[in-house]
Structure formats: structure tokens, C-alpha cells
Write a protein that binds this DNA or RNA. Structure first.
Lengths: 151, 151
DNA sequence: CTACAAGCTCTAGCGACTAGAGGATCAAGC
DNA sequence: GCTTGATCCTCTAGTCGCTAGAGCTTGTAG
């Protein structure tokens, strides 16, 4: 019935130090201890940890999971808050996708324009160097030199 | 000709503490100092910092930027390495997009299936709770309770 | 009863910054 | 020349979600 943190780890697919970390940040309860101060868990903790793991896999932050867990303890309440949290997270994921997609576009343009010649004519380097707000030219850089290479 | 870190900050669009951090990790050179030990920069540093900022905006890691900067100092070399770095980064971005897209799908499914009733019947909570490896039932949870809610 | 695996606490590290304390310096105005 | 206030300096610590390791104790199987 009562089992160790290692067993819990295997049953829920979460590493032992991570479980202790979750306890520290208040996602998991402080469980009862054995005579020698070792943590003892039951099936409810497996379920809770699975919930946490799945929420993390979906990209929810620890703070959000704390709220989701608190809400799931109030099954008679309206789920409007749960819905709001999930929608907000969805919106964040969509923003990150949009941003990454535009990064991908620019990266693709860079690598397809690269003529595979020398660094001095490399499109990748040029794009990285040219995108700043250097609207006035800083003068005498020879072609093929970015002029800032000394660290 | 020689200007302060604050001016550099404004010209390159990078915050002052970030510039000092870049110096610490070797992306920016240790510049000459004034009599009172304040950093003095020139135009080359503006260009270098713009390069760094743009690479960061494209999601390159600091280690990769260090390599890109070193390569750009060798304009006669082949740009094969530059190309390799950019392509590897592109592949990482594509992986992240793929992962986020599948997250988005699951999140969308969750929120559209939510009936906006009580938490106990909320699809969002159910999906989070059910996805684990709890293939055998943990017994007597009343309908509407996840059975792990005590922290 | 002895190994030794697994547990414990505590501290520090990752990446890329950001924030703040507490003090020095610089440039401009009078 | 002097004062003011913005800017600069170094140093430490915090962010997030873990992960790694040291050094010690406990549990369990043979």
C-alpha cells in the first residue's frame, strides 16, 4: 500500500529528484515518512504526479499546474477558470508557433541564398551583420570584412 | 569617436547589463577604459553588437554566436561551417515548431470539448488526469473527483 | 548479519539574462 | 570651482524547471 519515492518515480514516469523538487515548490504534498524519515506514498500520489507530468508535457508552467490542481479539488465549481487557463496557454503556444515560423522563414532564406563560397560572401553572415539600425555606413570596411571581428 | 556603454546600448538596441554580460561570456571584447575605469567603445562594437542581437533574435545560442563571430573573422575560409551551423539551427527550429503544433492540437481539442459546466465534468481536467499509465483503476473515486487533490 | 541499493539533505549549476545594493565618475550648468 | 544628477562601476542573487553531486543514513535481500 505505502511505497517509496523510487517506486512512485517508476509508476508515474517522473525522476526521483524531480518529485522532491515538486514537493519543494508545493506541487506534491509532503508525504508521511517511515521510521527512518523516508517518504511513503500511496496511489493518489501516482495519479497526482501523472496529472502534473501530463500538464508539463503540454507545456503548462508550474504556477498554472498549481492552479489546475487546486481547481480539480473543487469539482462542484464552474470550470470557467480552468477553461480560461487552458485558453491562455493555447494562445501562448500559438504566439510561440507564429514567432518560430517567421524565424524559420528567415533562416530558410539565409541558407538557400548561401552560395557555398567563402565566408566573405556568405549570405548568412551578411544577413546577420546587416539587419541592425546601422542606417549610416560606418565607413571603410573592405568587401568581405564585417569589421568587428576582434574579441 | 569613443563612447560609453550607455551610448553603445542605445545605438545597438541592447541593454547595458546585457552588454556587460556579453563581455563576461566572451561575445564582446574587454574594451579600453577611461581614467575612471569606464568602458569606451567605437563603431566596430556597435556593428558587432548588432550582429549578436540579430543572431539572438533568430534564436541562435550564445555558443553558436561565438562560432559565427569567429568565422566571420576569417572571410577567406569556406563558409561550409557557417552553413552547417545555420542549417542545424533551422532543423532545431523546425523540431520545436512540430512539437508546439502537436501541443496546440491537443490543447485545442481540450478546450473545444469543455462543456463549460462544473470542474467535475471538465474535459480539460479529465484529459490531464487520464493520460497517465494508470491502466488499472485506483478504485473508489466518486465521479467528479480526481482523488489526488490534497497537497 | 552483511552488503549494497536506494534513500536522505544540502549546495551548486544550467542558459541568458535581470534586478538591486552600494559606491564612483562624468558632464553640464551656475 | 562646485554641485547636481545621470550614468557608470562591481558584486551578489534571482529567474525557471529541473539536474548533478557530495557525503551520509536507511531499507531489504540473501
Amino acid at each position: 500500500m505505502a511505497f517509496s519515492i523510487g517506486i512512485l518515480s517508476r509508476r508515474a514516469g517522473v525522476k526521483v529528484p524531480t518529485i522532491r523538487y515538486y514537493e519543494q515548490v508545493g506541487l506534491m504534498p509532503s508525504p508521511p515518512r517511515s521510521d527512518g524519515q523516508q517518504r511513503r506514498y500511496g496511489d493518489a500520489e501516482v495519479a497526482r504526479l501523472n496529472f502534473i507530468r501530463h500538464a508539463r508535457e503540454l507545456g503548462f508552467e508550474v504556477d498554472a499546474i498549481r492552479e489546475l490542481l487546486a481547481m480539480s479539488a473543487q469539482p462542484e465549481e464552474s470550470c470557467a477558470e480552468v477553461d480560461r487557463l487552458a485558453r491562455r496557454h493555447l494562445a501562448e503556444v500559438e504566439q510561440r508557433i507564429a514567432r518560430l515560423v517567421s524565424l524559420r522563414t528567415e533562416l530558410q532564406r539565409m541558407v538557400t541564398e548561401c552560395g557555398h563560397g567563402r565566408v566573405g560572401e556568405c549570405r548568412v553572415i551578411q544577413v546577420l551583420a546587416d539587419h541592425g539600425e546601422c542606417d549610416h555606413d560606418h565607413g571603410g570596411a573592405r568587401p568581405g570584412s564585417t569589421g568587428f571581428a576582434a574579441a
